[in-house]
């Protein structure tokens, strides 16, 4: 017991599989961390459709324990992870996107990703209407209850803090300044789990081809 038997070198890979050495060279992860992420990826990508690709329903299932019902934020994250925009998240997309959430990833990558996430209509700016829509969506999914006037106050206050040139839209530069002053706004952009991914998915050792 305790020993690792030699693994099948060419076990079946999911469609769109990319070599961990290549992904590690392009991301914040080590090769072993990418291999551990592959264990997570397989679990997620076979949870409903059994095709080795993560579909939106599988992503929702993992986040909410149910695949039913859209969630504005989860669906936005899915769409941003789906770099090829073909409706599924492939392994390389999964690793490259999650890399931004690594605690070691550059702050500028996190800032840029959050900007794209909140620029709901992809205009290159975050508009007040988008901010209001996101606050309302957050309230809908949570137990928080705020009056319409409280929502307006929060949206107006935040918007005026961020929109420093007063042109009624937040541009990437203004966003960068805003998150520097309000770092808690990017709290969700760092996942401590990613530092312990090899511990969380130790079975990667069974399939590992390198020793970091």
């Amino acid at each position: 017991m305790g020993c690792v038997l030699s693994s099948p070198r060419r076990s079946r890979r999911t469609p769109g599989y990319e070599e961990p050495t290549v992904l590690a060279s392009q991301t914040s992860f080590t090769v072993n961390e990418v291999e551990a992420l592959y264990e997570l990826y397989k679990k997620l990508s076979y949870s409903i459709f059994k095709d080795g690709l993560i579909h939106k329903e599988e992503f929702r299932l993992a986040l909410f324990r149910t695949s039913k019902g859209a969630n504005l934020f989860a669906d936005r994250v899915f769409d941003l992870f789906d770099l090829k925009r073909n409706g599924v998240i492939e392994f390389g997309e999964f690793v490259r996107s999650l890399s931004i959430f690594h605690p070691r990833a550059p702050e500028s990558d996190k800032t840029a990703f959050a900007f794209k996430l909140y620029d709901l209509r992809g205009t290159g700016y975050i508009e007040k209407e988008e901010l209001r829509e996101m606050v309302v969506a957050l309230l809908d999914e949570s137990d928080l209850c705020l009056s319409d006037s409280a929502v307006e106050e929060i949206v107006d206050n935040t918007f005026s803090q961020a929109d420093s040139n007063g042109d009624d839209r937040i541009d990437p530069k203004e966003w960068e300044e805003f998150v520097k002053k309000n770092p808690a706004s990017l709290r969700n952009m760092s996942l401590p789990y990613l530092q312990d991914i090899t511990t969380a998915f130790p079975s990667f050792v069974m399939h590992s081809e390198v020793d970091d």
């Binding site: 997570l40 997620l44 993992a62 986040l63 909410f64 969630n71 504005l72 934020f73 989860a74 669906d75 936005r76 994250v77 999650l98 959430f101 996430l117 909140y118 901010l131 996101m134 606050v135 969506a137 957050l138 999914e141 949570s142 409280a150 106050e153 929060i154 949206v155 206050n157 935040t158 918007f159 803090q161 961020a162 805003f178 998150v179 309000n182 808690a184 706004s185 990017l186 709290r187 969700n188 996942l191 401590p192 789990y193 991914i197 969380a200």
Partner: peptide
């Protein structure tokens, strides 16, 4: 009345943005 949080901080608490859930068994 709760202390006023900035709207982006509020949004960041969405479960849909809590990707840590993906790592929970």
């Amino acid at each position: 009345r709760p202390a006023v949080m900035n709207a982006f901080e509020l949004i960041s608490t969405s479960q849909g943005l809590n990707l840590g859930t993906l790592f929970e068994k």
